[in-house]
Design a binder for these strands. Structure first.
Lengths: 128, 128
DNA sequence: TCCTAGTGCAACGTTTGGTTGCACATCACT
DNA sequence: AGTGATGTGCAACCAAACGTTGCACTAGGA
């Protein structure tokens, strides 16, 4: 279910500084290493390294403008990353719901003394 | 919008090995460092360190059973982590949609030659 | 008691996020 | 053109994190 590319996207997005950078780039449309470092608690070099990481996984791409190097978010790749986040979140959410349902069923069975209604399951999950 | 606790949860969940561990713990209900390392491509010590990290941020909690130390997922905290993932994903998704809408509006304005309908914006986002 | 299975701690190496320092390129101004 | 300010790039260095190996300790079973 998880590929190496997914892990690359995750680790790229897992760093808080890089998430802030993506936020800033999305808000402003584009930005440079120096411009971003102005609004981040790290130096320009750190930002440049993060931009290199983001560029390597395709989340941003650079365009030289005069002496500047303007970076811009790659919408398609970021959408892919968002899909990964949603996929993992949904998977865990489904597991948690199943656990909760089972716990509630046991609780009902203990207090009510009758057969726990485990039938209304809409999660098509065959466990792991 | 992002707190230090959020960053802790993110970095805990950002590691691919820890994500696999959470998957396994959710699937099996509980597990030990040795048992998990059997199904992971890392040594028991690495798993133990990861379990310590997850324990520190409250995503799992341990219970000594005989000579074993069984770990179990903390549902509430994992739900919180899932909420964080969903929040970031939603935020980015919203930004991407707005960008797409603007691009489409410009495209319509160029080809159709009439006023681009930018009014139906339901994203209450004031930029920044 | 002795052996096995599970855990914990310590040392070590590698990668990563961050810093400082310096050199190079480009724009603006006189 | 010359000069200074602004923006980048590269290299060295430091600290934390992920992973490994090795050894010591503890609890269950023969």
């Amino acid at each position: 279910m998880s590929t190496a590319v997914d892990d690359d996207l995750w680790s790229a997005v897992g760093d808080p500084t890089r998430r802030r950078m993506l936020d800033l780039l999305l808000a402003d449309g584009s930005g440079t290493a120096t411009g971003l470092s102005d609004r981040l608690p790290v130096t320009r070099q750190a930002v440049a390294k993060h931009l290199a990481v983001l560029d390597r996984v395709g989340l941003v791409h650079a365009a030289p403008v005069g002496r500047e190097k303007r970076y811009q978010v790659d919408q398609a790749q970021l959408a892919r990353a968002v899909a990964q986040l949603a996929a993992v979140g949904d998977a865990w959410d489904g597991r948690l719901r199943r656990i909760k349902q089972i716990a509630e069923a046991i609780e009902r069975g203990r207090t009510g003394g009758r057969t726990p209604p485990l039938s209304p399951r809409k999660e098509g999950d065959s466990n792991g």
